[in-house]
Design a protein around this nucleic acid. Structure first.
Lengths: 155, 155
DNA sequence: GTAGTTCCTGAGTTTGTTTGTCAAGTTTAT
DNA sequence: ATAAACTTGACAAACAAACTCAGGAACTAC
């Protein structure tokens, strides 16, 4: 039950954007440098976020990605769903490959309840968190913002 | 974030044992038939449970696996840890491959908090459930027990 | 038209799942 | 006692899926 890197990297990257960039387009290159994530891989993750309506993009110089909504409108739950794709939070409603019926027939699926309740637990928790929440936490922790980073290297 | 089949199959199998077999040794073959799980794979999972002190085994005819403790002493949490091995519940305390320090340096790990809290949530939930709990649930659902199943095929 | 980006497709590597083979131990029947 | 049948135990090969990364095409600003 490992959390995929898509979620971990993805959330870290989005937090980074909300915390450091605000609304401005920022390049994958920048984020990957700050967060130490493979740029190419991060691009893929961002594609998912784009399809999910979390990010928008702009090509060309001065281009990059930027948040499609306000930070408080982007929940961690939405990020998870976009990143993991299958939207299976904990994974099993006992229908892995159409074996769902069999589970019902057997009736032996108390475990299904367990996974369902666990998934709900996570769902509720993740739904209560959004990028704004995370930014506030970051500020509470005293995390440094790397603002105007673009210009630092041009002088 | 998919729950590995080791956990799903494993818990289902253990529940099956507690519910149907009681203390008697039961064969992998039987469980895999009832639960529709690949027998060889289930054996591997049971080896983990054996090492974790959840199951014991007996070879030869009339042999099989049986619970090493009473059902109420086997928590779902313990099953998860035994099945998943790495004991990583949600996976990331940000030290995937010794990159932990880097996360601290960056200080950009608000996400670490999030995963930690989510993991704790699951840990608490799973620790509150055990095989006896599940059996009671099964009974409440009116699941049929397949008792004396051995003899049914010998007449 | 040139440089800086995102976007699309694919390939290599790892991990998870399944199946196969044979050895070791136990019970039962002869 | 001895053989036969049954069951776990250990190892490894085959198969599938997912993770990770790379190359080049498409687009946009200047």
């Amino acid at each position: 039950m490992r959390l995929s890197t898509k979620s971990r990297y993805g959330l870290r990257a989005l937090f980074d954007m909300a915390y450091n960039a605000g609304n401005l387009p920022i390049q994958v290159k920048e984020i990957s440098r700050r967060q130490n994530i493979s740029p190419r891989y991060l691009e893929q993750i961002f594609q998912r976020f784009k399809k999910a309506g979390i990010l928008k993009s702009k090509k060309g110089p001065q281009g990059g990605y930027f948040l499609a909504k306000r930070p408080e409108e982007i929940t961690v739950q939405a990020v998870m769903e976009a990143a993991e794709g299958d939207t299976l939070l904990v994974a099993c409603t006992c229908d892995n490959t159409g074996e769902g019926e069999l589970c019902e027939l057997d009736g032996n699926c108390v475990t299904q309840q367990v996974w369902k309740e666990a998934a709900d637990l996570l769902h509720d928790y993740f739904s209560g968190l959004n990028l704004k929440t995370l930014c506030e936490r970051g500020q509470a922790l005293g995390l440094k913002r790397e603002s105007n980073h673009k210009f630092m290297y041009y002088i």
